[in-house]
Design a protein around this nucleic acid. Structure first.
Lengths: 196, 196
DNA sequence: CCCATAACTTGCGTGTCACGCATATAGTGC
DNA sequence: GCACTATATGCGTGACACGCAAGTTATGGG
């Protein structure tokens, strides 16, 4: 990969990480106190450069979740071809959210701060496109004619989101993987393979 | 109801309507040209009052869809108690989106303008809470323990959103109700029997 | 190895926006 | 009718997103 591309990705992650870290520090109520300058300074770039990468604080804070969601399609495609759809999706999502185990503070910040709600939804929804394509490829349906892939992808993304919310509730002892499996089981009651 | 409450609701709708109308007029590409002053003036209030009702242009433009989503729970609750969940949900959503038939221009504006994406998702997602409660009440499950109501509500809201996107695609001759039924049938495969 | 070019960073200036505060007005309940 | 509360409006302010132009750093062909 280019040096340029790698640098670009690095600064993007640096800014995103700095934004989320500062947001967590100031707490959900002091979000307005997280100035653009603070983020840029913490990431070691000028505030103008920050705006070259993100067009709002919310976008920067939720960047990590957005990147994560973008990997959902690839995760599903990497499952064995013979596996039934439901099992494949569940395994793929658990795998996706296993390596960087979700950070309670970070997830709580982006999921339960009103000002970030829109951007957080955008971030989770970014999984739908790639997921729908992967589902269509796996079930042999045509996403341009059939609604099944898109609707299922939306249901899966929604289940992930609901699982996150539930996992954040106080008094939840289960691992995120366990909650995720339970949530996705509601979408795939057992082995619902592809159909119209 | 109070005179106050009615006035409040009226100005809220006036502002929202004006915002959406102006956005449609200027087109998706000239959204930045829709100034807050224009919206306020078109609604017959001061720009300061506009900000008492909405805290961003996007919120004002998507207000109608948000209000619509808030009615989803009530729509489901008004279905006969004996009806199977899938049929009840499908009938409720078709009914909800039947009276004020979706406006192609308006829906297209809020669903396919990048700057509005986050707020549009927020608007559609507003249906989930009430829907989950109604589903829990209908299925006798406890939403505090069971994930089924919340996950199903998210799936339904997602299906509605996907149906809207599909319905907006050029060359779609079907009525919105037809697309909606097909989309929701993916969430409730068992309820395919013809009805209402 | 070097240079022309493209990509990226940065500082500055600008128009807009969201909101706090103070004041005037209109609706409500006793 | 009167005190009280909710709402509307004007003004002022701090922050923000972005266009523009200059300086700096990679890239690829000769």
């Amino acid at each position: 990969m280019d040096l340029r591309s790698r640098n670009r990705q690095a600064t993007r992650e640096a800014i995103g990480h700095a934004a989320l870290r500062l947001a967590i520090e100031r707490g959900p109520h002091g979000l307005a106190l997280v100035r653009v300058n603070d983020i840029a300074e913490a990431a070691g770039v000028s505030s103008r450069t920050y705006n070259n990468y993100f067009s709002s604080r919310a976008e920067a804070i939720c960047a990590f979740q957005a990147d994560q969601s973008r990997r959902a399609g690839r995760a599903l495609r990497s499952r064995p071809a013979g596996e039934p759809l439901g099992q494949a999706v569940i395994a793929a999502m658990i795998e996706l959210y296993a390596d960087p185990e979700p950070d309670r503070a970070g997830l709580s910040m982006i999921m339960s701060t009103p000002e970030l709600e829109g951007e957080a939804l955008k971030a989770f929804t970014m999984a739908e496109g790639p997921l729908a394509e992967a589902i269509a490829a796996r079930t042999g349906t045509d996403p341009a004619r059939d609604l099944f892939p898109a609707v299922t992808a939306a249901a899966v993304a929604g289940a992930v989101r609901v699982a996150g919310r539930r996992w954040l509730e106080p008094g939840t002892a289960d691992s995120f993987a366990a909650v995720l499996r339970r949530a996705l089981s509601c979408v795939f009651p057992e082995g619902l393979s592809g159909e119209a």
